[in-house]
Amino acid sequence: MSAVIEARGLTKSYGATRALDGVSFTVEPGRIVGLIGPNGAGKTTALKAILGLTAFGGELSVLGLDPRTQRDELMREVCFIADVAVLPRWLRVRQALDFVDGVHPRFDRARATEILSRTDIPMASRVRELSKGMVTQLHLALVMAIDAPLLVLDEPTLGLDLLYRRKFYDTLLNDYFDRDRTILLTTHQVEEVENLFTDVIFINHGRVVLAASIEDLGNRYQQLTSAGDQATRARALHPFYEREVFGRVAMLFEGRSAAELGALGELRTPSIADLFVAKMQGSPNT
């Protein structure tokens, strides 16, 4: 099966700022990919390029289409939630269903109604009368009823409380995701969603710092916690990041075997959050 997204050398500048500085990555079908980076790293710009919302340089193919010239065709195959707060405030819930039903060939109105019936959202309300969490639920209900092969979410839970965030990702995983679908999700709250991803792409200063599947991360990276003499010996093996925790040193290694490190302390697979911090601090221009 060919890749869902194939990006080669994407560039985009806003004035003197290089939002995308030669970004390349591939997204395979049936994956949940986290595009992770600090604020201003270029995540949203990359998504805008993928969705044909902005001009950019480089080669980009999304589901075999060029977002610059084939945007209208692309939008039949791609769903996206650009932000939590973009549903128009004057729109009524029922009108939202009417409208999407009227223009989207892949929309299943019965399914959207069914998802909404599990929430407290009244059909007659306007978006402006709903809480922020409800607006997100409404948008997710609309999107989940669209049978599209690619779903793109840009910080979909920004500003929501923990309960809504949990519910959002649970619904997404349990009711929406299957192996025929691909989800691309940006976030800067890594720790919260790290069990969700099958793949991660770290991006910083417009460059891809790391792109790997979760299985690969386990094989490639090790986190070693040790102290004293063991730590000194471990340091000789060139960790790319280290920090002190309660008098012990946590070190991150790339491409070392468990046999090499096992004798030097406590070994485990680093969390995505730990890797993220390490990679961001180790990447250039920081």
Partner: peptide, 17 residues
């Protein structure tokens, strides 16, 4: 108005040219 309240991002997510 759709740019001001950013709802253009919702309308542009639908297959309407």
């Amino acid at each position: 108005a759709e740019r001001k309240d950013r709802s253009i991002l919702f309308f542009k997510s639908l297959p309407v040219s």
